[in-house]
Design a protein around this nucleic acid. Structure first.
Lengths: 112, 112
DNA sequence: TGCATTCATTGATGATTGTCAATACAATGA
DNA sequence: TCATTGTATTGACAATCATCAATGAATGCA
């Protein structure tokens, strides 16, 4: 849409298609993926059926409290789930979560 | 994979499949989407062919410097592109960018 | 019961971020 | 040239975040 003149850029419509609460949920998912360390953790978990926390410290190169902090954040966003068996905490990815976020982004563009 | 015994949780392999530089690029895209206001801005832009900055302030409800700050961040991540025509800055979404980032995430899981 | 191990929590610190007021810059029109 | 308008930048401040050392809680083994 090119401006009809040089006085007004375009009609002052309201293209506000994303509600605030939806934006808050979505931003939480993307915030969880917005850290390089968490992306590495997520990749490590996704690369295996399941993996315990102690085997994340080595590849990622962070301390145990930091790993615990990041896995908690990924789990809070619904991207991974953890199950405690014995002494070990086992993590798995939630397959459809990233997909759901992608579909919401796709829905922003009505055509196509 | 269940543990073979109670002494070792699993083999101490190296499931590190995401390099640090790749993680840095990816995290930049997700960081841009990790803010509710930027998601609303992105949705507003995606809902139209193109939109000028002045028409983002109203729907989003933020000041002009804040809008400028957020559009710059979205553009820096490659999610939108801007073109200045006359006095107005016109923004369009880069169609495949968010999709590409989320496809990378889906690629972490080798099976499926 | 006592000890070692695995993970979560707390406290602290330096860095980053979101926001706006004020200001500067750029483009247009008179 | 001067005034106006749309956008970008700067400065400042409060809030959030990533990180680690220290500590606590829970489990399993002897």
């Amino acid at each position: 849409m090119t401006p009809a003149n040089n006085f007004f850029c375009c009609a002052d419509s309201d293209p506000h298609s994303l509600e605030e609460d939806q934006a808050a949920v979505l931003s939480k998912v993307f915030s969880a993926l917005a850290d390089p360390v968490r992306l590495q953790i997520y990749a490590c978990i996704a690369a295996t059926d399941e993996i315990c926390s102690c085997n994340l410290e080595g590849p990622v190169g962070k301390s145990q409290p930091t790993i615990s902090h990041h896995t908690a954040k990924l789990a809070s966003a619904g991207l991974i789930v953890g199950e405690k068996r014995g002494r070990w905490m086992w993590w798995r990815v939630v397959p459809g979560m990233a997909e759901a976020a992608l579909n919401t982004i796709r829905g922003f563009t009505p055509s196509r």
